[in-house]
Simulated scan of single mutants.
Amino acid sequence: MLQCQLRRPSRQGLLATVLLAAGAGLAQGQDLYFAQPYATRLYTNPGYTGLLDDYSVTLNYRNQFPTLAGTFQTSQLSADFRFRDQRNAVGVLLNHDRTGGIGYTRLQAGATYAHHLRLSKTFGLSAGASVGYGNQRVSYGNLVFGDQLTDDGSTGAPTLEVADFKPVHYLTVGVGGLVYNEYFWVGMAAHHLNQPDLAFITQATLPMRLNVHGGFKYYLKRTVVRRQPREISVAPTGSYTRQGGSQRAEAGLYFTASPLTLGAVYRGIPLQSGPRPQQALTTILGVSLGTFRLGYSYDVSLSQFSRELGGAHELSLTLRDFDMLEASWRRLKRRNYPSIPCPAF
């Protein structure tokens, strides 16, 4: 029987191992989660490509269960560009997910494309697609096997256990779309349509991830100061995600008083079907200053088990541009497309 242990084991480390083992036993993979869905909108739905800015470059970092010394860490780099005809936009997306305790890493790089249509003077439609290449691997540097232990507990000799899981390579494709006007938006996306195999030994598919999301923005005040839009608004949002045998429902509320945005999202709304999900309350603080956006969020766990592992910190930093003069010219020529009112964080 194969025996191994983590170096410097702890109660939190054992909890993490239990979580990982449980996920492996399902023979299905799961996608990573971000608490700022509109700062990671290309990951949420490829239809968002080029909708919010003329161009943008965003860096996101998420540290989940920080009491485990960074065991669950995710980084994402995304960028999108809208062509001057406003009908076409392209984007790139790079994700890096790391589970430090057992040295598991997943790297995925992809591209997105969206085509924008003006359905009427006030309604717009965006249809998008994505394609990505992924690589996942396991490092054994942090593991100690039974044949490396002596009576006094010291280690030193190399293990005779065969632990040579080759890296897994896979291809994934997805589609998504949005309908919107200046007051509301609703979208749907389907990721991993081909359900790629992520197994190291036996088959373990990455199930299709389906997501439906939307929201409504109520403007208390709108104006333009020095060619920059300013607003005071309230925006309730909602989202439902299903992947394999798991599902997640969320409800949020964003308050914006330019340049600040405050948000609260409740994750884990109980559903009639399926097991009771882990519940969390996410608080979001964002600021938009010129060409920069900076966002921070923290997950406050409402479930006892996950509370022992700590919450989650998430940061987003965006460099973006929106040409107000160009938009005004297009509006005069009746060539301007509706603007999507979703939050930026």
Rank of each mutant, 00 (worst) to 15 (best):
L198I: 06
A127L: 13
A190H: 01
L125N: 03
G124A: 07
V173F: 08
Y180C: 04
G153Y: 00
S126Y: 03
G146L: 04
D197P: 06
V173T: 13
V162C: 12
N135S: 07
H192S: 12
Y140W: 11
T150Q: 00
L198P: 06
G187H: 02
G153A: 03
A189C: 07
M188C: 12
N194W: 01
D147R: 02
N142F: 04
Y183S: 07
P158K: 09
K166A: 04
N181T: 14
T172P: 11
V138L: 11
N135G: 07
G134V: 12
L160C: 15
T172F: 09
E182S: 14
G153S: 03
Y180I: 02
F165I: 02
V144H: 08
G134S: 03
S139M: 13
S130A: 14
V179K: 07
G187W: 04
Y133F: 12
L160V: 15
V144Q: 11
Y170I: 12
L193H: 02
T159R: 03
G177L: 01
A190E: 03
N135Y: 05
V144G: 06
E161M: 13
V144K: 09
A127T: 15
D152L: 00
A129P: 15
M188K: 08
G187Y: 01
V131Q: 13
Y180W: 06
Y133K: 05
G134I: 10
N194Y: 04
L198R: 02
E161Y: 15
S139V: 02
L149H: 04
G174M: 07
G132H: 10
S154W: 00
N142Y: 04
N135C: 09
G177A: 02
T150M: 00
L160D: 15
G132M: 08
V179D: 10
L171Q: 13
S130R: 14
Y170L: 02
G156N: 00
M188V: 12
A129K: 05
A163T: 15
L193T: 04
L160K: 15
A163Q: 13
L149E: 04
T155D: 05
H191N: 12
G176M: 02
Q136R: 01
G132R: 04
D152M: 00
S126N: 07
Q136D: 02
V179I: 13
V175A: 14
Q148T: 11
A127V: 11
T155F: 07
S126R: 04
F123V: 14
V162H: 13
Y183W: 09
H191P: 09
M188H: 10
S154L: 00
D164N: 12
V175I: 15
V186M: 07
P167Q: 01
G132I: 08
W185R: 10
L171F: 14
K166I: 01
A190P: 08
H191Q: 12
D151N: 06
L178D: 08
L198F: 01
G132S: 08
H169I: 13
L193N: 05
D151E: 13
G124T: 08
A190I: 02
R137Y: 11
G176V: 11
E182Q: 14
H191E: 08
G177I: 09
